[in-house]
Amino acid sequence: MRSRLFSATVACTALATMTSAVTAQQADRLGYYDKSREGWFWYQDPPEKKEPEEDITVPPPLMPAPEEPEAQDTEMPPATVATTPQMPAVGSVEFLREAMPKALDIATDNPTRENVERYLILQKMAIDKSEMFSEMSKMVSTGHPLLDEGRRRPKQDTFAKKLEEEAEVKKREVLSEFFKRNALIMFLDNRCSGCAMMAENFYRMQQTHGLVWQSISLDGTLLPDNLSSNQSFNAGIAERLGVDAGGAVFIASPPSTYIPVTWNPTGGAEIADRILLVAARSGLITDEVFRQTQAINPMIGSAPTVKEQELPPILQAADQFIKPEAITINGMENNQ
């Protein structure tokens, strides 16, 4: 059975091959005239070969390129070159100002002969320089019309004492005239151990200068009658003037001005000088009259003045803070 099927298959294959060969031979025998339908052209264009269509793909829209940031000035500052500070000239004042403290520290921490000797030599150099400067200062100022202080006060005691005697006479005259228009008020209490001594000084000034004064007791304490016959008790004036302890002295200038002279017991010579200073500051005596009471001649020449500038903000704030608490020393009005 299998042999039959195989024989049939072989036969079909041979038949198909023979048929294809006959068809090819017949096509070759067709002559030129048999192909007249194809035209009289010498050459027949072969059929055009269609090229494969290109795959045209539309590219996606281009995104705008990001803007580059503007170039900034990135120049580096010039590098600072570390320089060694230049040492001052050896032996100069600047050199001694820097060397002496260091030499002293080293000599104190380690007091060897070399360390101590080093410091003492440097110290002597400074002292010698100061002495040389002092000698030259005397040489320059002696007889100089502006620098010679002998024009203001003699250096020899005899002549200086003579100037002081003349000033004391002038003080007595000025104070005697001053007490014709003004008086003193002294506050006392039992805690003021020096008030009695100060009252004795006022009693003597009453005899020599024509002083007019009154004592006011804060707690009922009174002075002996032989020292003061004009005594009173506090009726509120001490509180208005800020007095809370004995020893305070005020100038009483009519009609109702009180000026502090001292807040504690003060000797007779000092209290007289204070009265003159406060009177000149308050305008109760002129500057010229005040200078006549001093044992020194007026200043030669004048010091330059600088135009006052606007206060910095911190001082303006300070003024606002302290002014409510400040006491006007030029005069305190009594509202009584």
Rank of each mutant, 00 (worst) to 15 (best):
T305H: 06
E54D: 07
Q294R: 13
G247M: 06
R113N: 09
R274D: 03
P52H: 15
M132T: 03
Q123W: 06
E173G: 01
E166G: 03
F250E: 05
S217F: 07
D319M: 13
G301Y: 02
S302C: 03
I327D: 06
W213K: 02
Q207I: 15
T74K: 07
S253V: 07
A65P: 11
T328G: 07
S92V: 10
A269Q: 10
A160W: 01
G91Y: 09
S302D: 06
R291S: 15
L211M: 10
E51S: 11
P145N: 00
A317W: 02
S253K: 02
T80H: 15
P154H: 07
S282E: 05
V212F: 06
R153N: 00
T112Q: 04
H144I: 00
P111W: 02
A196I: 15
Q336M: 05
L211V: 15
D55W: 12
R153Y: 00
V278A: 11
L62M: 11
G194M: 03
G283N: 03
V81P: 13
S228N: 14
E38S: 11
Q44E: 14
S256D: 12
A82R: 14
T108G: 05
F6H: 08
I185E: 01
L175W: 01
G246Q: 03
D273S: 12
T305C: 04
R118I: 03
A89Y: 13
D128T: 05
M205F: 08
T112G: 11
A14Q: 08
V212D: 10
F250M: 12
L218M: 13
Y43G: 09
T158K: 13
A252G: 09
D219S: 04
T286L: 12
A238I: 04
S134D: 02
T293K: 03
T13V: 15
W263D: 14
A79P: 10
F202T: 00
M205R: 02
V81T: 12
T328C: 07
V249W: 00
V90W: 08
D287N: 14
A11Q: 11
M139F: 07
